[in-house]
Design a protein around this nucleic acid. Sequence first.
RNA 1: GCUCCGUUGGUGUAGUACGGCCAAUCAUUUCGGCCUUUCGAGCCGAUGACCUGGGUUCAAAUCCCGGACGGAGCACCA
Length: 472
Amino acid sequence: MRSAPNPNGPWHIGHARMPAVIGTYKELYDGWFCVRFDDTDPETKRPDLDAYDRILDDIEYLGFEPDAVYRASDRMETYYDHARELTEKGGAYTCSCPQGEFSDMKNSGEACPHRDKDARTTLSEFEAMVDGEYESGEMVLRVRTDIEHKNPALRDWVAFRMIDTPHPREAAEEYRCWPMLDFQSGIDDHLVGVTHIIRGIDLQDSAKRQRFVYDYFDWEYPEVLHWGHVRIDAFDVKMSTSAIKRFIDEGELDGWDDPRAPTVAAFRRRGIRGEAITDAMVGLGTSTSDVDLAMSAVYANNRELVDDDANRYFFVRAGGEDGDDEAVELPVSGDAPGEGTPPVHPEHEDRGRRSIPVDDAVYLEAADLPAEGEKLWLKGYGPVEYAGDELRFTDDDIDVVRDGDADVVHWVPAGDGTVPTRLRTPEGDVSGYAEPAFAGTDADEMVQFVRVGFARVDGHGDGESVAYFAHE
RNA sequence: GCUCCGUUGGUGUAGUACGGCCAAUCAUUUCGGCCUUUCGAGCCGAUGACCUGGGUUCAAAUCCCGGACGGAGCACCA
């Protein structure tokens, strides 16, 4: 099987589907898969030189190692040879009709005057194409299919055309005569031994077009499956490589791994394992109709993968960039203990307990504040009553929680050890305070901010620490 | 306009080739309960679907015909 990306940019999350599915099938059925960069349009789908490696990197992150990697732009001579052979078999002719004129004739089922050309004329004109003797638009090589085919999409399609813009890859910058996808991928699939093709619904007619070429060569066409588009819920940013690129250029996004971007790189930085994405993609199946990928499915997978290792910390959200919803600082009075000792991980008592010193005041999230006179249970610390301007420690036992008289909330001390932290989320940045022990976490570690969600520690800077929010 | 294709709970999926074992699977979501000095975690449970109208048949999610809705192609893009 093969994944044939167009390297015109890093991947958004939808691109993960192909490697996820064929990589999984390969493992399941002891198969083989390659990545082939279909980079045969230096102009309108101009390849991005960085994208080749980034894509391979993304595939590795998703959990797969391709058995082979090809670049179509390295294989031009092969395509030329097959074009010559096809011409000799009577399967192609050069055509200099203006695009619109040909289209009109084709749509009414009429052959253009070039269709009867003999193979020798075509061959010499094709060599001239290869040598770059025509300008863009002057001459194409068409596959001779059936000009009266009932489906107009299949009638005498273009196999090669001239492109004046040089290819960005140095190895391919001299070529001017480029194959179209249907020709190039059709030839390659057979030559590298692809037996099963999965591709998008937009390429439904490709198989039918390519079959004409396969018939000329007397090759057997692979099994082919067309799947629908994936829509991802939960993202405002329009999901297309060019749209994301534009947002980055305009400064709306910080880069390809901005947590607000629906890119593979962003998911990675947020601490979502490739496996979680892969499993969700495989779960979508391969149906022809469009599907919605619920992010909750990816998050649910990731939660399971990550929960066991993610130690718990408290993080009090102070608010977004607009400064609303400030955290509330309240003194603690009464016969209060000097520290809170919640478990590092409730299912792993052996990891011990954190120590959170309480000098005289704590921060709470504004939304957690009860009505005056009501009680709260500060998790890992104890019961308090909200007295309007302070929290009075009470002698209640845990029954106040059982009886529903007090909510259990997280908190951090308002003292020196508290760690100012920025949590970068798909909805934007949230600033806040993490408990002192958070300063001891390592970059790349996954943690769970209790009652907030899972996050990946990005780093601890001078003034603030940064974490990337994964999911609840 | 011409040509393809699809339609199972909120979401995804199994089942549809060979009709009965499907008053429909699994996961997620939502809701409820349980546990834990009491996690937006975990455990348990509940709600919730065969696009529509005809036909064939003892029997239809499954077969046939029509309709609706949705998607795709008809590029010198991939």
